[in-house]
Amino acid sequence: MFSLFRHARILLAVAALLTLGTPGPASAAPRPSAAAPSCDNADRIDKTLKNGARWQMCWDIDRNTGVMLSDVTYTPNRGTPTRVLKSASLAEVHVPYDSGQPRFYDVSAIGFGDLDLGTLTKLSKDDCPTGKLWNYRNAPVMCSQEQPRPFAYKSAVEKSVLHGTDLVVFSVSEIGWYDYIMEWHFSDDGAIAPRAGATGTLSPFQFTDATSGWPTGVGSKRFSENHMHNVFWRLDFDVDGQSKNVVEQYDYRGSGTAKRTAKRTVLTHETGADLAPSRFWRVVNPTALNDDGHPKSWEIDDHESDQYRGPSDTEEFTHHDVYLTTYRACERLAYGNTAPACAPSVDRYANGEKLTDPVAWVSVDYHHVPRDEDQDPMPTHWQGFRIVPRDVTATSRLP
């Protein structure tokens, strides 16, 4: 649970900095057209994993969103490079309490990447024991390291087993009593898994309302209040480095029947979409074909969300699990967007414009009901999603 005092202190500090001229959310820079990572070597991650797969990307720090990745390119083992994402970042962490108040907006109101405010945490080798620490303003704030991934595959027919690896890029931000570990997993099979881990300290403040909390003190008189962690990510797709990307929704219908039918829907205009059984989305480039002649795509797999829906008058941006919009430089945050001449939240971005150059805004919601075991140190609870390659290679390139 968050400390109201610490949040208030941070918000006052932010207000003071803004008064002194500290910039708010900045508009994104013009999009470079280079297919390869366009940054200097000091800001470029280039890692070949154990099986020969390679990930390349640029990185930077934004005061609101923390680590921002760009020009994300995947080269399969024995394959050719394929651009996946033009940019990727956090877009909001919304924390409403079950009692109705408070309701925090940790990215837009506080910021995950502010070294001056102390929200962006300096890392040490204890945080990054086998990897590389990356500096921002002479402070180590990001780690990249190769981590094992058990059972990339196992085949009884071929009598073989392979354990894979991921390139993991992460930073840590201290917001209130929480330490948020913001990870990006880049797998040797081409999957990307953003996830947020919340750990740190359970707030010492106690409530007395059993309807919106859980007893964490002696007996059943003091309660820690339940709350949500609604995390939004922003993925600017650029499959194979071209602007001809199309978004498709697939539904496999049939409940209580022996036969199932597939329905493919091309999403031609900006929209909000919801999770449903046997539903997924993919961003496909019809002009980029694998060796079998099938178009390359990445599939959005987001099925581990508690699907929070807030009040219609103030939190309409929470009313869908995925938003799909056309790229606009000023549309950076899911909520509290202050870029000039731009809409304030993602639900307003999705206004029915023709969907070209698609950006996916993915929400994963977690309902935190505190327990005795959460009392210091609080074990990390994780939430996230995956995008996985679909037909990027004609056969498996794991071995």
Rank of each mutant, 00 (worst) to 15 (best):
L12F: 15
V14G: 05
T19Y: 04
P25C: 14
S27P: 14
P30M: 06
P32G: 15
C39D: 00
I45N: 03
D46V: 04
D46E: 08
N51W: 05
A53T: 02
M57Q: 09
T65R: 01
L69I: 07
D71A: 04
D71T: 01
N77K: 11
P81H: 01
R83W: 08
K86M: 08
S87M: 03
A88M: 10
P102T: 08
P102C: 06
R103A: 09
I110T: 04
T119S: 00
D126Q: 14
D127K: 08
R137C: 09
E146N: 09
A152M: 00
A152D: 06
E158H: 11
D166M: 07
V169A: 05
D179W: 04
I181C: 09
E183L: 06
W184N: 00
W184T: 01
D189F: 10
G200P: 01
L202C: 04
Q206V: 12
F207A: 02
T211Q: 11
S212K: 03
W214E: 11
G217W: 05
V231E: 02
D236I: 01
D240C: 04
K244M: 15
V246I: 14
V246A: 15
E248A: 13
E248D: 11
T261P: 05
L267C: 03
L267N: 00
T268C: 08
F280A: 06
T287R: 11
T287K: 13
A288Q: 03
D292P: 05
I300T: 00
E304W: 14
Y308W: 09
D313F: 13
E316N: 13
E331Q: 07
E331I: 05
G336F: 08
N337Y: 09
A343H: 15
R348Y: 10
G352V: 11
G352T: 12
K354D: 15
K354H: 11
D357E: 14
P358T: 10
S363H: 08
S363C: 12
V364P: 03
V364S: 05
V369T: 12
P377E: 03
P377T: 05
G384V: 05
F385I: 07
T393Y: 05
R397P: 05
